[in-house]
Lab assay of single mutants.
Amino acid sequence: MAAAAAAGAGPEMVRGQVFDVGPRYTNLSYIGEGAYGMVCSAYDNVNKVRVAIKKISPFEHQTYCQRTLREIKILLRFRHENIIGINDIIRAPTIEQMKDVYIVQDLMETDLYKLLKTQHLSNDHICYFLYQILRGLKYIHSANVLHRDLKPSNLLLNTTCDLKICDFGLARVADPDHDHTGFLTEYVATRWYRAPEIMLNSKGYTKSIDIWSVGCILAEMLSNRPIFPGKHYLDQLNHILGILGSPSQEDLNCIINLKARNYLLSLPHKNKVPWNRLFPNADSKALDLLDKMLTFNPHKRIEVEQALAHPYLEQYYDPSDEPIAEAPFKFDMELDDLPKEKLKELIFEETARFQPGYRS
C-alpha cells in the first residue's frame, strides 16, 4: 500500500510507478496490472468513496492506442447498470505532455475469474450472474457493438453480487458484411471463450460470437473449470467437437473457408456428449439454455433477447427493466489503419471533457 500523499506533496508512487492523480484522489492501494497499465484503488475526496484507477501508458504502440481509444469512446457513450462506466479521466493539459491516461471507475471487490478459483456457486448465484451478463449484453448488442472478449476476468463483482462487464478494448461495431482481413492475426481474445466460426472463417462476425462466450462462462460457473481449455488453435476446435459432436452437413455448409471445411470433413465422426453427463448436478433449465448458447452453427445460436426470456431466468426476466441503447454506435473511421500519432490526438480530444474549465 502506498503511503497517503500529504496535501501538495506531488504524485504518489505505487510499486515504483508514478500515479499522478492528486489532489482529488489519494490513499492509493495496488490492485493489479494488465498488459499496459496498473490498477489501484484510491480515495475520492470529492465523492467520499474509494474508486478504481487504471493507469494506461499506450502511446508507444499502435495496438494499445487503438484499444484505449475504443474503450474510452464506447464506455463514455454507454450507460447501463451492468456495464462499468467511466467516472473521470485524468491526463496532462497538453498533448505533448500526455504520456499516461488515468481512467477512474467504480471500485468492484472482485471478478468472476477470482471468485470461481475459490468458491463453488449455488444455482441461485449462477442464475443471477447469468441474468446480469445477458442484461448488459442486450444493451451492448442493441448499440450494434460486439464485445468480443467476454470471459470471467472481464466480469466485475461486488459483495452485493452486482455484476458489471468491463474491458471493451477489443470491441467492434457489428459488421457481418465487412471482410476484416487479418482478423485472426489481430484477434487476441482469450482462445477458450472463442466461437468456432472465428477459427473457421475470417469473413465478418456477428453478435452470436458473444453468446458463445457467455455459454462458455455459464459452463464454467457450473463446474469451476473452463469447458474448452484448448492449448492452441486446432486443439481448441477438437475440444469443442469432442463435446458438441461432429457438425451436420448443414452446419458445414455455413463454413465459407474450404480449407477449414475440408479439415472438419477429414475428422472421424464424434457423438455429442449429453450435458447432464458433463454437469450431473446442474439445473435442467440451465443445461437447456447452455445447449442453445453453445450451438456450433452461429445462425442457430440463441440471441440475447431470447436467452433473457428463457425459463431458467424467469424469476428475473423483465423486458421493461432491460434497457437498450438510445442509438446504434458508430465509429467515424476504422481505427485499425491509423498511425499511433493520430490515435493519440483522438484520445486527447475524447478525454477533453474531463479537463478543468472544459467548454463543449
Rank of each mutant, 00 (worst) to 15 (best):
L184V: 04
F331A: 01
C216N: 01
E314F: 01
L258C: 10
Y128E: 01
Q355H: 13
Y25V: 02
E326Y: 03
A286Q: 03
T63F: 13
N154F: 04
G37H: 10
V188S: 09
S153P: 03
T118Q: 03
S360G: 11
T118G: 09
L234Q: 14
I240G: 06
A92W: 00
T118K: 11
D175A: 15
P323W: 03
R24N: 05
I209S: 10
L75K: 07
F78E: 01
A325S: 13
T206I: 11
R277Y: 05
K207F: 09
A309Q: 08
K117D: 07
A195F: 04
F354T: 07
F331M: 00
I86P: 09
I140Y: 04
K151N: 08
P152H: 13
L28S: 05
P23Y: 03
L115R: 00
N27V: 01
T190W: 06
A3E: 06
D177E: 14
D100P: 13
L155S: 06
P152N: 02
T185P: 15
A42P: 05
N262G: 03
T63C: 12
E96H: 00
M221R: 10
E350L: 06
G32K: 00
C65N: 11
E250N: 10
R194H: 09
P247W: 05
Y317E: 00
W275R: 15
N262F: 03
G136K: 05
M13D: 03
P226V: 05
N257S: 12
L222A: 07
I83C: 07
N271G: 08
E109I: 02
A309E: 09
R225G: 05
A52H: 04
G85T: 10
S41E: 13
L184C: 09
Q132H: 15
E334A: 02
K73Q: 07
L157V: 09
N297S: 09
I243W: 05
N297R: 07
A3Q: 12
S246Y: 01
P93C: 01
I53G: 09
Y113R: 14
A92H: 10
P247V: 06
G10T: 06
P319M: 06
E322D: 12
V173W: 03
D235A: 10
G8F: 01
R225C: 10
E314D: 13
E60Q: 13
D20L: 03
N253S: 07
G215A: 10
G10V: 15
A352I: 08
Y316H: 00
I53C: 01
M333G: 06
H120E: 05
K73N: 14
S246P: 00
I83H: 01
L134E: 08
L69I: 03
A325K: 03
K340L: 13
N154G: 02
F78Y: 15
D100K: 12
M293Y: 01
E220L: 06
I198H: 06
N27Y: 15
Y139G: 10
L200M: 13
I72N: 14
Q306Y: 02
I103M: 05
H147T: 10
I198A: 01
C65Q: 10
H147G: 07
E345W: 10
M199Y: 08
L163A: 04
G242S: 10
S57G: 15
F279W: 06
N47I: 14
E303R: 04
T206V: 05
R67S: 13
E349Q: 05
Q236T: 00
N45D: 08
P93Q: 15
K207W: 07
E305F: 10
E96T: 00
K340F: 00
E305C: 07
K114T: 11
P23N: 01
T351K: 07
R191A: 01
I31A: 05
Q105I: 09
Q355G: 02
W192R: 15
P23W: 00
S266K: 07
E322Y: 00
L287G: 03
K203Q: 09
L237T: 08
P323G: 07
D162N: 14
D167K: 01
G169K: 03
V304P: 10
H269N: 14
V214F: 08
C127I: 11
A352K: 07
N82E: 09
D179S: 05
A325N: 03
M108F: 04
D106G: 00
T181R: 10
Y131F: 14
D106W: 02
I89R: 03
M293T: 07
D318L: 01
P58Y: 15
K344S: 03
I256D: 11
K344R: 13
Y30S: 11
G136T: 02
E326G: 00
P280R: 11
A189N: 12
K54T: 06
L116F: 06
K99E: 03
